[in-house]
Design a protein around this nucleic acid. Sequence first.
RNA 1: GGCGACGUCGCCAAGUGGCUAAGGCAGAGGUCUGCAAAACCUCCAUCCCCGGUUCAAAUCCGGGCGUCGCCUCCA
Length: 474
Amino acid sequence: MKIYNTISRKKEEFNTIHKGIVNMYVCGPTTYNFIHIGNARPMVVFDTFRNYLASIGYQVNYIQNYTDVDDKIINKSKEEGIGPLELAAKYIEEYRKDANSLRVKEATFHPKVSENIEEIIEFIDTLIKKGFAYEVEGDVYFDVRNYKPYGKLSGKNIDDLKSGARVEIGDKKRSPLDFALWKTAKEGEINWVSPWGNGRPGWHIECSTMSMKYTKSPTLDIHGGGQDLIFPHHENEVAQSEGYTGKPFVNYWMHNGFITVNKEKMSKSLGNFFLVREILEKFSGEVIRYFILSSHYRNPIDFNDGALVESEKSLTKLMTAYNNLEKLINDNRDNQNDILENEFTKIEEKIEKALQDDFNTALAFSFFFDGSKIVTKAIKENLYNQKGLEKAFSIFKKYLVDILAVLPFEKVEEEVLEGDDNGTFNKVMEILLDVRNMARKDKNFAYGDLIRNELTKLDIEIIDTKEGSTWKKK
RNA sequence: GGCGACGUCGCCAAGUGGCUAAGGCAGAGGUCUGCAAAACCUCCAUCCCCGGUUCAAAUCCGGGCGUCGCCUCCA
């Protein structure tokens, strides 16, 4: 297994600290809003990696935090007129709904900041005692100058950073690079009692504290997140964690690329984001998941409606093959030909090779398109037997259903036409189709085609199948 | 300005030294269908530019040009 490590900028052979166990931490959401498709990428990507690692025999201890104490939450809670923790709880619920739609499974632990304050205070206190942090008027800052390797993850050096750093008016920090571990509470803000007065944790400290607590280990095997977290968030985590333990914090740093819109980064501050909630109205979660996994996780992907339409079509192709296999699986055909078994043995090897190489999910998918072709051909030409079917089906199931989790899926139902309140329109359409089919039965195709053509002009498509005729809005 | 990533068919996207440069979408042709749709089959690129290393480069090195990200909350 090879994994690209941000800190070395190379693919490295993956070895865990404890044999057979992976301790993996991925930065979770700050829960003050619905999530957008950009937030969905790390969720989907790391969920998939977790599934894969489990499939090759690791016990994966997967931790994802919920940041429920934060400036943005405090501000939003004022707007919505409810308490910050209440607001966070509400959006955690919403987050879980979206995660569920995207087939992202629960982590082993989902620790919250508000439930780990005691540990955070202990962590900060130790940093002060070790000389890595200092207190000023109720605030506590990490002293970057005292942590020499600062910058090793993001490849920056302290002097460059200093010259470009923003100095805020009234800043109490000794150096502009120092970051807050503990913030004094402003009037009326949520706060906890600490040795430095009432306040709350800074942003970075939670990840260090909770990752160590829930893995019971000073060193993580894998720490993941979006590329934009490399600096300063992850850099700061390294500093405070290694300051605290004196041991390496993370063995493999993994960072996913961005989702862009018209080649521009999607972000809340730019306002060019699409909520997962909105997209789910038009496409199923599996389609979104396929869209994300059909590029390598470190590459940028550009989001647009067309891309999802394309993803849906591609996925439909795989779905068709999967359905065909499922239908025939109990056929008990006794045939000497073992083409499916042979081909799918080879396909599985290729898939494994792809996933072993820094989780190349895009490449893995391509083998399923080849596989689908083979399935179709074998069925059509009657060149299959029970063993072959079972082999092919088990490969589809293992990877597409369980690990990549994009099958089975259902297309999101087309909405009924505007202005249709109680199904009247659907009934009218039914009548129209009945009339047309009566005409077709009488071989009066001119009438039938007239109806079809006129409806086509209204963007309504008629589809004839053996079972009957249906329609959909284009 | 500092650091980093990337540039492969009309679009998306694998491939990082050597068989015919994967796969998907779109397009073309065909099978099927009363006609359509769906499904299925077939076809469709020498890799941004220039120079170098090598028996051999999309793949390594140098130089351009271009795109994007981080350096401020952000997945």
